[in-house]
Design a protein around this nucleic acid. Structure first.
Lengths: 246, 246
DNA sequence: GCAAAAGTGTTACAACTACACCCATGC
DNA sequence: GCATGGGTGTAGTTGTAACACTTTTGC
């Protein structure tokens, strides 16, 4: 039921004397309505730290401020599609895990117009995959997830929300696979959890739990570094699925 | 980034040859944009069963079909406000616990226009609190949550989503208080959980767990029925808060 | 006194936490 | 041979699940 019409039905505009700022263009034409946007909080792990990608707004009332990749949703476009497009425009990324978070609709969240924004979280396995931003941004940068600069609009709220969702999903899904390369060491997996959850994990207990779930496949190779080589693992399942992780 | 100024940056309309149906009204005027609606899945317990309130659409392409209370969001209105208004229009309810669920934006979810809908779940303590529906509906009725009729739009999906969220929140919040009268017996609380989770619970274990949380206050009165009287309880906290319940 | 719902404990098992030492390699 | 990170097991505790009988009332 998305309808509001007098006598009728479905979503033709119904000017029922409601307390709105109605702007008529032509008879029977569109009443002023909130616009729909998407904003995407992009995370990746870099250097054992959880990072968050921000773009700097080139113009508008918030010019110079940092914000998440976003944009208005177009007619005929899915929300996920709009989120992907916004991400591509801001970072050149063509592939990312996407998760819808929450919709923010406070009329004053954008001082220039009533814009309802559907927040998304995007996860990638390597921060270096981001490329050039489109002209609507001055540029983009990775920030430590806990040390974000002042953000435009209500994006600080979105950041909080995204972080909470990421943490929650790390605990009950295999979403970690989207933040890791195809094969990884146990230490990397553990560091990912420690970084995102902001608490140290017991190495033995962590390994035992993960192993008990039978989610990982041991790869034949080893990672050789400065010291004892580490076994490499990969997630068995490609899709993100709900399983009690922690 | 939800601004829309031309000349500026941010989401200026960019007709980049994208595959959309762009409709220009006047130079520099608004391009066609998806509309924003809310839809509210209303739950209550009746007769030890989880019920869901539906309204029958009076007109439009889906006339005669059942759907959740919904309506377009107005400029200047919060999303929660729009959900409350839709609920009031459909059921006369002025008070209900509200929880935003998810946003559905498939362009074809409504055949008449691209409408992005933000789904809400509403919970009330007594199904008889619903009153008259506005003229845009033929009427409203409670259905068993697991035996819904064919629903308009993508409302069947919303119903699934709402049920999942309700179950999840019963397990980690004190949301049950919104589905119960101010005071209730332990049996009623347990029946609520059993109805929503669709599984029987062990009475002793359930009571012990709930008691261990120290969330309930024992009321002085007892409920007298056909047999042994039952102690009455009330939730100590008015607000819904996250606590591991089950 | 009997039918019906309310109320109450114990035990076995599973899961979680805390904790310290040896191992394999590069330099 | 030493510095560095990789890899492993056990014991105590806590939490969870299964299970049946007694109590109180209305009729």
């Amino acid at each position: 039921m998305d309808s509001v019409s007098p006598g009728g039905n479905d979503r033709p505009e119904a000017p029922l004397g409601a307390p709105e700022a109605i702007v008529r263009a032509a008879p029977d034409a569109a009443v002023a309505r909130p616009k729909v946007a998407v904003d995407t909080v992009l995370f990746a792990i870099e250097n054992r730290r959880l990072k968050c990608y921000l773009v700097q707004l080139a113009g508008g009332p918030n010019a110079g401020k940092w914000a998440f990749a976003g944009g208005l949703v177009r007619v005929g476009e899915t929300l996920d599609g709009a989120a992907r497009r916004a991400l591509r425009d801001a970072s050149g990324l063509n592939e990312a895990y996407l998760d819808q978070l929450f919709s923010f609709g406070d009329p004053s969240r954008d001082p220039t117009a009533h814009v309802v924004s559907i927040a998304y979280m995007a996860l990638i396995d390597n921060p270096r995959r981001v490329g050039a931003a489109s002209a609507k941004y001055t540029g983009g940068r990775w920030f430590a997830a806990r040390e974000l600069p002042e953000l435009a609009y209500d994006h600080a709220l979105m950041a909080e929300y995204a972080l909470g969702r990421l943490r929650a999903k790390l605990e009950y899904t295999n979403i970690a696979r989207t933040l890791l390369p195809p094969s990884f060491t146990f230490a990397e997996l553990e560091e990912l959890y420690a970084a995102a959850l902001e608490r140290p994990l017991d190495r033995r207990n962590f390994r035992r739990r993960i192993m008990a779930m039978d989610l990982l496949r041991r790869m034949p190779e080893q990672r050789r570094g400065a010291h004892r080589p580490a076994g490499l693992y990969a997630f068995k399942h490609r899709s993100v699925r709900a399983i009690q992780m922690l």
